[in-house]
C-alpha cells in the first residue's frame, strides 16, 4: 500500500535532520532543499540513499537534479 504524503514527509524530516541538522519541523513540502534548507549536492545523495533505505524507492543520481523541493521528493517516492 502506498504511503501517505504525511508519512513520507515525516520520514523525510527525520532523514534531513539526521544528515543536515535541519530541525525536522522545518522540512515542509514547499521548501527548496538548496535555497531554503541549505542542503548541498552531496547531502542530497545522502538523503537519497537514506530515503531508499526507508521507503524502498531508488532515487538515481540523474533524477536528483530535478528534485528541487521537498514536495518533488514526496511525489517521486509516491509515483
Amino acid at each position: 500500500m502506498a504511503m501517505s504524503e504525511q508519512e513520507i514527509l515525516s520520514g523525510l524530516g527525520e532523514i534531513v535532520n539526521e544528515i543536515a541538522g535541519v530541525p525536522a519541523d522545518e522540512v515542509t513540502p514547499e521548501k527548496s532543499f538548496v535555497d531554503d534548507l541549505d542542503i548541498d549536492s552531496l547531502s542530497m545523495v545522502e538523503i537519497a540513499v537514506a530515503a531508499q533505505d526507508k521507503f524502498g524507492v531508488e532515487i538515481p543520481d540523474d533524477q536528483l537534479k530535478n528534485l528541487k523541493t521537498v514536495k518533488d521528493v514526496i511525489n517521486f517516492i509516491q509515483a
Partner: peptide, 12 residues
C-alpha cells in the same frame, strides 16, 4: 568527475 555518482558509490 561525476561527483554525486562517485560519492554515492564510495559511501555505500
Amino acid at each position: 568527475q561525476q561527483g554525486q555518482t562517485v560519492f554515492r558509490w564510495a559511501t555505500t
